[in-house]
């Protein structure tokens, strides 16, 4: 909320319309709980009262530690070299991506 109010101030906006957030599957953040918290806090501030939250869930990928191929998160072995040494990458973010304001 502090970041949003700061942004609105920087851009001379009087209301925040849409807030876009990207949440990774490995971030430990539950999208439903985040929405609930957002609605509660947004309602308390005249700048954010009308704001709608749009959440994009992002999936991590896996990098094969043997051949460096980037593979889907659900695969158990590397599609190129069959290695089981796959290390998760990304999917751990909680990022404010875009804000629409007026």
């Amino acid at each position: 909320m502090n970041q949003l109010c700061q942004l609105a101030d920087e851009h001379g906006a009087t209301a925040i319309i849409t807030v876009r957030v990207s949440i990774g599957r490995l971030s430990g953040i539950v999208a439903d709980s985040f929405s609930f918290g957002f609605e509660t806090l947004a309602g308390e501030n005249s700048l954010t009262k009308k704001a709608a939250l749009e959440i994009t869930l992002t999936e991590p990928v896996q990098r094969c530690l043997d051949c460096r191929l980037v593979a889907d998160f659900s695969t158990k072995t590397c599609p190129r070299c069959d290695s089981t040494r796959l290390s998760p990458e990304g999917g751990d973010e909680l990022v404010l991506t875009q804000v629409e304001m007026e």
Binding site: V99, E100, M101
Partner: peptide, 22 residues
């Protein structure tokens, strides 16, 4: 550089890409 909003533009979209755990 003042904060007077542009009367032509009522809504605008700002790209942020900043972590909320910043």
């Amino acid at each position: 550089g003042c904060h007077t909003p542009d009367p032509e533009q009522t809504t605008r979209t700002v790209d942020v890409h900043r972590s909320l755990l910043e």
